[in-house]
Nucleic acid binder design. Sequence first.
DNA 1: CCGTATCCATTCCGATACTG
DNA 2: CAGTATCGGAATGGATACGG
Lengths: 150, 150
Amino acid sequence: MVSRTRFDDSDCPVARSVDAIGDWWSLLIVRDAFDGSRRFGEFQRSLGVAKNILTTRLRALVAGGVLASVPASDGSAYREYVLTPKGEALFPVIVALRQWGEQHFFTPGEPHSELVDRRAGHPLRPLEVHAEDGRRVTPGDTTVRKVPEE
Amino acid sequence: MVSRTRFDDSDCPVARSVDAIGDWWSLLIVRDAFDGSRRFGEFQRSLGVAKNILTTRLRALVAGGVLASVPASDGSAYREYVLTPKGEALFPVIVALRQWGEQHFFTPGEPHSELVDRRAGHPLRPLEVHAEDGRRVTPGDTTVRKVPEE
DNA sequence: CCGTATCCATTCCGATACTG
DNA sequence: CAGTATCGGAATGGATACGG
């Protein structure tokens, strides 16, 4: 049925995450959900994706527990799509991608959308990776280990 | 040439990042690079991907400045693929995906690979998003703004 | 061991038309 | 507005064979 290589049985959490999200469209849907989109039409206009594709992706994200389909808040007969707690937990992923993009694909002063702290109106602090004891770590400070130890 | 919808002119940094990475295979190649893979064969065995696909993805990642192709360190005639600074800057992205996966797709005690601080041998601290003043922020505390203000 | 070249089946996407 | 149904073309991905 699915021919794309699946990673859902990998022992690597990155691979399973990638598999659960599905594809790039799905990730951008999640991004829009963080930005406040809830309605089918909102996603569609924002993404410019074909409606059948959007339907498929929304369904998959709901099935995967990332989005929940709830009755429309305006009392209409339609659905709205909101992030579940599991979906909200993707926040650092989106923020990390956003910061990487801002840093490497925009010239200074080039118009772009920016994620800001609502209270102060300022951009967020760059994400940092820390060890358990609070030390900041770089990629070279880390290593991948199988659990349980083999 | 490429029919997949491109996002490289979007004003959203997330979209440009997604576009630059290319596809899921590329992201897993980057993951392997963080894990220490450098050789064609290492990537191929780890990923189980067809060689022609791997060639394409490596080339794209090199072209995109994420990986650099350098002479093999063992003196052989081949190339090795190492992360550039731009590629290393994807560290938080990989860590975020890894942590999301660990949290949501593994049962407690299920074997998996884990990223640990090499010095202490402990897992990393969960990523947190902070405002400029150091306050921790959740998705609801943030909003997306166009820059410059429209 | 490291790729390149070719081939083919699959599928994915986008457009369009249609329904409630 | 929110989907569903269908269709054709493009292109990707995997297998395989080949070459440096």
